[in-house]
Nucleic acid binder design. Structure first.
Lengths: 169, 169
DNA sequence: ATGGCTGCAAACACTTTGCATCTGG
DNA sequence: CCAGATGCAAAGTGTTTGCAGCCAT
């Protein structure tokens, strides 16, 4: 069930990032390496806040401002994507050089799963074309109740009783 | 090109809203009616900010706090939907009692078009099921370059020259 | 009359920015 | 050595909330 991908070669990713920095004439600082390393080791989707927390202790901590700046560099570098799941904060996800995918989220526990569907991808291209658009990107998020909630009757955050209408948000 | 829907009976919509308020034991205040009326007359997608601006002059203006509160009531009432288009502010759209639809947005001028695709809707249900989810909602947004930009070489906000990588955001 | 509503301003959460200092190349 | 990076704190957005006074019911 859990993505069993073996740490898609963090070293290679770090090397790519360093190359990008070099190519752009940006400096390879300890903060950038630490942030990048942590980013590449994050299991899945995370917020800047979570990233900042995860970066604590190592050698003190890195300033939020700096983390925001580094994250934005990584997005430009194409090694990180940004998601808007309808919550306050943006979510990020490192790109293991692999395929694009969409997301399905649990409205109760916030669990996030991924999926790919070629038919939908094709449809989107077709639709964009029909409307005269040159498709550049898209975001598809499904929201529902996760398998755990359905089978055990409750998941991390909510349970059937008080889940009255958490879906409203 | 522009949605030619003839003001889907604002009076009926207002009546529905009033009924909802009554049913819920909420008060029918002048602010609520003014906001609702304006909401129903808004052409398409708007932010709370735009709504507040549009509400000015009539009889002074309505406090943002109040507008936020009324908008949230209307969402609960099911007469307004909330969208996250990846920008800072949330976008709203009144529901004319009609069909659900998805969006396609221009990365340059911010233009927003709508579309419905049953095949994709079905696919989503299937995908959710395959992942053990009970699908409650979804959001599908396509981003690209609009027809105007493609045909005339420029649209409201940007033009091919400086549009270098506005897609990065 | 009275409890919900409004308006104001302060509080909030997330993100960005100005500036002095520090550091990689 | 010096442009670019960092950290801090202050400033910005967009949105929410506490509270006193107001108005539908």
């Amino acid at each position: 069930m859990t993505t069993p991908q073996p740490q898609v070669d963090i070293h290679k990713q770090l090397a790519n990032f360093s190359n990008y920095l070099k190519k752009k004439g940006l400096k390879i600082t300890s903060q950038r390496l630490l942030v990048a390393e942590k980013v590449f080791s994050m299991e899945s989707h995370f917020t800047v806040d979570a990233l900042a927390e995860a970066l604590k202790d190592r050698r003190g901590e890195i300033s939020r401002a700096t983390i925001y700046r580094i994250v934005s560099v990584m997005v430009e570098a194409g090694q990180l994507t940004e998601h808007n799941f309808g919550q306050n904060a943006k979510y990020y996800e490192h790109i293991p050089g692999q395929d694009h995918h969409d997301h399905i989220l649990c409205l109760d526990c916030g669990r996030i799963d991924e999926f790919v569907n070629d038919a939908i991808e094709e449809m989107q291209l077709k639709i964009a074309g029909e409307h005269g658009y040159d498709l550049a990107d898209h975001s598809l998020n499904l929201y529902g109740k996760c398998v755990e909630l359905r089978t055990t009757g409750s998941c991390a955050r909510g349970n059937p009783d008080d889940s009255g209408e958490s879906a409203s948000n």
